[in-house]
Computed example of a mutant assay.
Amino acid sequence: MQWMPCRPPAPVVEFAGACGTDAPTYSLDRPGMSAFVLEDGVVYHTYSTYGRGVDALWSMYQWLDRAPKGRNETGVWWRRHDEYGKH
């Protein structure tokens, strides 16, 4: 299922280009995790998360988030609190 609006946000276009694809195709391939339970012979879908929601499962990110420079990421989605300005 595609979530992309008619005009993709600039960050998505930028990241898609960096991966050598277009924004709609890029938006289809995201990390995710789903949980299921089997009860009385029936499988129930109990939870799903995608994108940044799976960070808690990748334990290294938890350590990086506590480091002096965090994940040390740059780009359109990452600004430190002292760089916000008046937008």
Rank of each mutant, 00 (worst) to 15 (best):
C19Q: 08
G20S: 03
G20H: 02
G20E: 03
T21A: 02
T21N: 03
D22P: 01
T25N: 09
T25D: 12
T25F: 02
Y26M: 10
S27C: 15
L28E: 09
L28W: 04
D29A: 13
P31V: 06
P31S: 05
P31K: 02
G32V: 02
G32A: 12
M33A: 11
S34H: 07
S34Q: 07
S34T: 05
A35D: 05
A35Q: 07
A35F: 07
F36G: 02
V37C: 11
L38W: 03
L38T: 08
L38P: 00
D40I: 00
D40G: 12
G41W: 02
G41V: 04
V43K: 06
Y44R: 15
Y44G: 07
H45E: 08
H45K: 10
T46K: 15
T46S: 14
Y47P: 00
S48F: 03
T49F: 00
T49R: 15
T49N: 14
T49Q: 15
Y50W: 08
Y50F: 07
V54P: 00
V54H: 01
D55P: 00
A56K: 09
L57F: 12
L57E: 10
L57Q: 09
W58S: 07
W58Q: 11
W58I: 13
S59H: 10
M60T: 08
Q62N: 12
W63H: 11
W63Q: 14
W63N: 07
L64S: 09
D65Y: 13
D65K: 14
D65W: 08
R66E: 12
R66P: 00
R66T: 05
R66C: 05
P68K: 05
P68L: 03
K69T: 10
G70R: 10
G70D: 10
R71H: 15
R71W: 04
R71N: 10
N72S: 14
N72F: 10
T74L: 06
T74Q: 09
G75M: 02
V76M: 15
V76I: 11
W77D: 07
W77T: 01
W77C: 04
R79H: 15
R79G: 01
R79C: 03
R79S: 13
R80A: 08
D82Y: 08
